[in-house]
Nucleic acid binder design. Structure first.
Length: 409
DNA sequence: ATTCCACAGGAATGAACGGAAC
DNA sequence: GTTCCGTTCATTCCTGTGGAAT
């Protein structure tokens, strides 16, 4: 093997193209940032912060806008005031109930050697602990709940908005910032939260292809060497991003993967061909990794559906799917009820692995749903391969299975 | 306008589990 | 040890529903 030596790289600063990077300036969101700025202004005036709800699909800059704006705010605040200021950022994908989020907040406000456990407490006690920590430190607290639509209950919203009004918080000013991918999030809230929240709403529209071109151009200038990118690459990534719902994260990711592929092949220029390959590879990874996170029975349901797909018998009715699921599930795995399997199918739909269609035959027929695979069969079979090796190969997918083992060039 | 169908999906309930509190 | 607490995953029961047929 050749010795290690420095290699020519097309990257200037690779991290600029990676997912966790927070740019100093958000391109193409001037109007939204202006509104955000105004909504945060009361903090600087010494009054109670507004509650703020940010709405917009994924990858439209809500989280990045929040991080940059709050960074700015904190800096300015300390120029004029010397009391406590903290922003507590929690992603509700990791902490999915109000209870867990509150415990997380308590622990963020406490020292490392004074943490409380994440289970076992009565919820009233957790509320009290949080109030105690807030009162102890005083000053300004901004609670940021990212992906707030993943929260299974909204009691924490009620707690925070009520704490602002009543006497339980004495020496502190608190505000709530919720970030939601679901545009109708407000409608899912309970009545008492809706009326007590009294929030400012900021809508972040999807990026257009033009916006995305500007975003990508900015990242390319900072992240890549001069002249390593072919004509049309940015436009192609922007077009894919716009078609995928105006998601800048996806567009940047696509460009980054294309750059990595070029780099790995010692190509000195990123071409649209690299973008195409990156897109295929990303789709494959997304499916295979998505399947890895499924529970065993969810995977058996998906397997059952894959066999129908291989036989060209999709869309298939839930009842038929359930029967095959029962046949495929090994007897020692205790098959679930049909009601439960309908829930599994709906999980698979949320992950965009399957599509559900509703039909109605009217009098004498009733109504029913059918399911079909929403991703290429070969990738799904690949993702399912550990399960298939475990519970056995269904004859319907033998061809797909064998071509997986000896892939055609 | 009413009837009728199959079943999607909501609601209630319970068991199992990890951890706190006594 | 026992009791309490919140969460997850499961079951059972059953109501609501869209639209063709009447």
């Amino acid at each position: 093997m050749a010795p290690f030596e420095p290699k020519e790289t097309i990257f200037r600063n690779e991290s600029v193209l990676q997912g966790h990077y927070v740019p100093d300036e958000l391109v193409g969101r001037e109007e939204e940032l202006e509104k955000y700025h105004k909504a945060l202004q009361p903090v600087m005036n010494g009054s109670n912060p507004n509650n703020i709800l940010l709405l917009g699909k994924s990858g439209v800059g809500k989280t990045v806008a929040t991080k940059t704006k709050l960074r700015e705010l904190e800096k300015s605040y300390h120029q004029y005031y010397d009391d406590h200021f903290s922003t507590l950022f929690v992603n509700c994908e990791d902490y999915s109930s109000s209870y867990q989020v509150m415990i997380r907040f308590v622990n963020m406000l406490r020292d490392d050697d004074d943490q409380i456990s994440t289970t076992g407490h009565p919820s009233n006690k957790v509320k009290q602990l949080l109030r105690d920590e807030i009162n102890k430190q005083g000053g300004v607290f901004l609670f940021v709940l990212d992906e707030i639509n993943h929260l299974s209950d909204d009691s924490i919203l009620y707690e925070i908005s009520r704490a602002k009004a009543d006497e339980s918080i004495t020496d502190a000013r608190i505000g709530l910032i919720g970030i939601s991918n679901a545009l109708d999030y407000r409608e899912t809230l309970s009545g008492k939260v809706k009326s007590s929240l009294n929030e400012r709403r900021l809508r972040f529209p999807a990026y257009t292809a033009d916006d995305l071109r500007a975003v990508l151009q900015d990242r390319v200038e900072n992240g890549l060497q001069d002249g390593v990118i072919d004509d049309g690459v940015i436009a192609l990534c922007a077009a894919h991003g716009a078609a995928d719902g105006g998601d800048a994260r996806n567009a940047i990711d696509l460009l980054y993967h294309a750059a990595q592929i070029a780099q790995n092949h010692d190509d000195l220029k990123i071409t649209t061909g690299h973008v195409d390959r990156a897109r295929d590879k990303m789709q494959e990874n997304e499916i295979v990794e998505g399947i890895q996170d499924l529970s065993e029975h969810e995977r058996i349901v998906l397997y059952a559906l894959a066999t129908f797909e291989a036989q060209d018998k999709t869309p298939v009715r839930n009842s038929e799917l359930y029967e095959r699921y029962l046949n495929l599930a090994p007897s020692d795995r205790e098959p679930r009820s049909s009601r439960r399997v309908r829930d599994f199918v709906s999980v698979l739909e949320d992950l965009s692995l399957v599509k559900i269609h509703s039909y109605n035959g009217g009098r004498g027929q009733g109504r029913w749903a059918t399911v079909s695979l929403d991703k290429p069969l070969q990738y799904v079979v690949q993702g399912l391969s550990p399960l298939i090796e475990d519970i056995g190969l269904h004859t319907s997918i033998r061809t797909v299975w064998e071509s997986k083992l000896s892939p055609q060039p």
